[in-house]
Simulated scan of single mutants.
Amino acid sequence: MSTTQRSESINSFFDKYVNRKTSLKQFVEQYENALRDRAEKENVEDFNSYNSWYPPITRYAIEKQMKEVLTNSKFKEFREELTGKMYCGIGSIKSQSDYLEYEVIEDVMNNENLMKKQFTVWFKKGDSVDDCDIRCICRLFAFRGMLCRHVVTVGV
């Protein structure tokens, strides 16, 4: 996330608790309330994630792995990307120094017309997890911390 995005995210989080006329004392009290509310929401989401079951929609092992590590809401986002994979295909693969560059072609609806849109995915395989790197031109992972359908197309 960029610095601006982080700042906007924090501002929107506190908008429900403070305003321009909030005193310093009120701010501290509201800050504690905000953190408490956030922790409670996370606990409820964790509880719901551990006590609910979503049947698999594919046979890919990555779906099962993601269900075990993601909350329900993030898992739903991931499944949307996983099913979006059916509209994608690999156009070409190029090797560039340490990276493999994949051209992924996605069928996209624009008004009533089906169009082909090109995305580039870069993958660097390393000796350890820390040495690996994967990026997509759509930047979904960079902005939301979520694998996109283009990366899933390359990796599954």
Rank of each mutant, 00 (worst) to 15 (best):
N72I: 11
K41P: 00
L114Y: 14
E112K: 13
E112S: 08
E32I: 08
Q5W: 10
L114M: 15
K16W: 06
E8N: 13
T120A: 02
I62R: 04
V69W: 01
V28Q: 05
K25E: 10
M66G: 04
M115F: 05
L100S: 11
Y54P: 00
S9D: 09
C88R: 13
D107G: 03
M1H: 10
M86Q: 11
E45V: 08
V129N: 06
K94S: 01
F14E: 02
T120E: 00
W122G: 04
S49L: 08
K67D: 00
N113W: 05
N111L: 08
K25F: 08
K67E: 01
E45G: 00
Y87S: 04
Y102D: 00
V108L: 06
E112Q: 11
N72C: 02
F141H: 09
C138Q: 12
I10F: 14
K94F: 02
M115E: 15
N33T: 14
E40R: 14
V151E: 15
R20Y: 12
I134N: 07
T3E: 07
I62P: 02
S7C: 07
L70K: 12
Q118V: 14
V69S: 06
R59C: 01
R79I: 13
N33L: 13
Y50P: 00
R144M: 02
I57S: 07
W122A: 01
L147P: 04
G91I: 05
L70I: 09
I62C: 07
G91D: 05
D37K: 08
E81Q: 14
S92N: 11
D98N: 13
Q26K: 10
R59T: 04
S92H: 05
N113R: 02
E40F: 09
K64F: 12
C136E: 02
R59Y: 05
A39V: 12
I90T: 05
E29P: 02
S52D: 07
R6L: 10
G84R: 11
D130P: 00
C136K: 00
G91F: 04
